[in-house]
Write a protein that binds this DNA or RNA. Structure first.
Lengths: 206, 206
DNA sequence: GGAATATACGGAGGCAGCCTCCGCTTTGCA
DNA sequence: TGCAAAGCGGAGGCTGCCTCCGTATATTCC
């Protein structure tokens, strides 16, 4: 408003605050993985060794806590995709491998899946964030395969992402990973150039 | 045990009991569709116009109520599949149509999807029941297409079911149905004879 | 039609989890 | 070392879960 607003440098965050934030996040991952999306938040606080008030200060809603956990997972997936993109494999193979690796990744967090399923439907912000990040990572692999003329160009990264995750959600018997990988192979074959499906509209931006 | 156990004919069920059972079921469908799987059961009772005690007598657990609603939906899907099997279309087309019709069906209950996602992971009994029923219905369509030599014979009805449902779960933006239908077309193309994917192990019985 | 009785109703009540609020403690900064 | 900003944590009000049992009502038998 007036000429010179005194720029108050904000304090650096308190050490205990940072520590508690991390503790709660870690505890939440464990508790949700075991107890599903309806697990007790007071249980999370207990597990983290903090008061319930502290939990709520850091994550004002259950949804916020979900999202924090989820985002962390997404970041790991992106990293994975980037690593895969630097290898030089035939483009379709690189693509197929990422999809398969993705399945394995989900496997290690299988307990979270119900929670994630709920999150997907509950928060479009969250899905937007993760689809954006993962979509970019996958997009690189996809573009190479398309450019090489190996697969059709009318299927977006988002389409593939949703397919992979959807298939993972639907399986949890022992051996499900193998089953999902093989179904993904069927899908990839359907994506090859020369397939007969009708045109798939490109995913609109945003 | 002894010679002639006096066969006490059981009373016919009370009219009010039957009425309340139906009311609760109906209310549950609505409430879960709107509020998701964690919606208040007392809310369901209120909506149904019965006491909470009555709700619990008919459906002793939240899970039981879920399942009752879910089974009703499954029955409708089976009926739909049977109707489709009697039409005489080219087998692959019949198959594709059922998968597409399925998407439409889910669409009308979209609100339930989070609840169903939870149910899928919560109760293997329930998934067993529905996969069995739907699998038989779809199996007929599938067998015809395989017999005609149009598609590979190593993909089970259960695989297809899970794929369809998994894709539906993952989409809820406006226009999602069209997107899912097109992704299913890609999948069907991958199933055609002459595709290059590795062998998919037949789904073991049970 | 009316009594007898099996059956169902429904809400009070104990318990657990949700979330807010605020007095007390700890930390960063000068 | 002193002090204010920042954070801590649990008491407390509220809602929902589920059980239990006194009351109400439908069915059956006469």
């Amino acid at each position: 408003m007036d000429g010179v607003t005194p720029t108050k440098r904000p304090r650096k965050p308190r050490a205990d605050s940072v520590r508690n934030h991390d503790r709660v996040l870690e505890a939440a991952r464990t508790v949700f993985a075991e107890g599903g999306p309806a697990a007790s938040l007071e249980g999370v606080a207990r597990q983290a060794g903090v008061g319930i008030g502290t939990l709520y200060r850091h994550f004002p809603t259950r949804q916020a806590l979900f999202e924090a956990v989820y985002r962390h997972e997404v970041d790991q997936l992106v990293e994975l995709a980037e690593r895969l993109a630097t290898d030089d494999l035939p483009p379709v193979e690189a693509l197929r491998r990422w999809m398969r690796a993705n399945v394995e990744f989900v496997a290690t967090k299988k307990g979270m899946s119900a929670a994630l399923a709920v999150a997907v439907h509950a928060s479009s912000d969250l899905t937007a964030y993760s689809i954006d990040r993962l979509g970019r990572a996958l997009g690189t692999l996809l573009a190479r395969a398309v450019k090489a003329g190996a697969i059709r160009d009318d299927i977006g990264a988002e389409d593939i992402l949703r397919t992979v995750v959807g298939l993972c959600y639907m399986h949890d018997k022992p051996g499900w990973q193998d089953k999902v990988r093989r179904l993904l192979d069927v899908f990839v074959d359907g994506m090859r150039r020369g397939s007969k499906a009708g045109a798939l509209p490109r995913t609109p931006p945003g």
